[in-house]
Design a protein around this nucleic acid. Sequence first.
RNA 1: GCAGCAGUAGCUCAGUUGGUUAGAGCACUAGUUUGUGGAACUAGGGGUCGGUGGUUCGAAUCCACCCUGCUGUACCA
Length: 444
Amino acid sequence: MTKENNSKPSKELPLGFVDRQEKELLVRDFIISNIKEIMIKYGFKYLETPSFEFSDSIGKFLPDKERPDKGVFSFKDENKWLSLRYDLTAPLARYVAKNYLEIPKPFKRYQLGTVWRNEKPGPGRYREFLQFDADFVGTNNLRADAELCIMISEILERSGLSKSEYIIKISSRKVTENLFKKINLNDSKQKLTILRALDKLDRLGWESVKQLLGDGRKDKSGDYTEGAKLGSQNIEIIETELKKKSPETEDLLEVLNIFNDYKFTNYEFDPSVIRGLEYYTGVIFEVNLKFDVKNDKGKTIQFGSIGGGGRYDNLVKSFGNFDAPATGISIGLDRLVYALMQKKDFNLKESKPVIICVFDKNLIKEYINLQKIIRNAGISTEIYPGEGKLKKQMEYANKIKSPAVILYGEDEIKSGTPIIRDLVSGIEKSVEIKELASEIKKII
RNA sequence: GCAGCAGUAGCUCAGUUGGUUAGAGCACUAGUUUGUGGAACUAGGGGUCGGUGGUUCGAAUCCACCCUGCUGUACCA
């Protein structure tokens, strides 16, 4: 791939990292501005925490305790290990534990920030991405969980999705706990395997999931996954239980009541929603898109959910002295943007300045004057920033999709009437300087 | 991690029984137009054919290993 000699720096990017261009960034900014507005409306505080944390601050919650560093980027500073954060929830728990006595209880905060994961990237998934989190800390009230779902719907709809294009799937850790009781299962390793299998239901379907609950499954590339080794009777019990269309656990019944009070309907109970396997303790939810997402070659890809969350009542406690139940939601903003851009033409304003052409360097004062007049009128403009002939300047204007060019050579300066060339129609118009700005506005 | 497919110019790709200085379209540069973009025409630059090693008189082409990318799968706190 790299054609450089070893002596030259590589122009390639590390695996899973990407450059992002204006078009995408503008859509992202648009969504962020919606989020901020809605967060203020819902009464959340804005917080920022650093990109790095001590590794054990985020690592002590790793489910795989034998390899605490797997999946994160870390380095050793003096004698301490630091890691780039892999989510915004662990830093929040750390922040709450650190500032517990000062903050209001319950504490509602939202955060926007880049997170990093040292794992294999997939379609629409990178190793560096922007996340949005909103959490309630210090309350058991299930209205918090319900309101998170309602709030995220408002964000999605404000950003351009209709009700038919997304759904909030909701379940509870308690659903699967009851299930394990029913089949008399205590082996925690086996439980984990079962949860992981069920989590794949919407992607793989019942046939494959039953294989994963039993002996194992071979995927279409030929790779084999070991199963949970359940007997067929237990598998059937699981299937019947999970095909139930309405929830039976108390927490979910209450959340559904609250949804009803809010007249919120764009959700569905789905017991196959599992999510982050270890620290969730109660209600869990997932935000799913209901349309196909394609990659840049036009192929439909397995996109998965764009976010989710749930109740994690023991996370803050694990830091030490303070016990605070909590619930929160995370959205992968870059993924949301990626999907949204396929659905909708946002037509947001890119930078497309009117170009003032330079006929002669000695006339630069004249051009600065025009530039000042046009910019003061609130119009994006620039004096051609390079060097070269008029043709080259026109090509530049065309390339950056400039709406118009200002021609002001010796003749025009003599008469004090610059020419505006409309780059879409090609029509040129000679105008008085005092009408310059208003004439440009007619075109753009 | 495992598996399938792929890697030839900036981009999209052509290039089979291995044979001279490796091609096209688009893009780029200059000109046809000493002050006019998007079209056309002319000319030009750009590649140790992902890398290393091997087989051979001779390798983009065959073999081995490695690297990178895409897709699926595992993991995803």
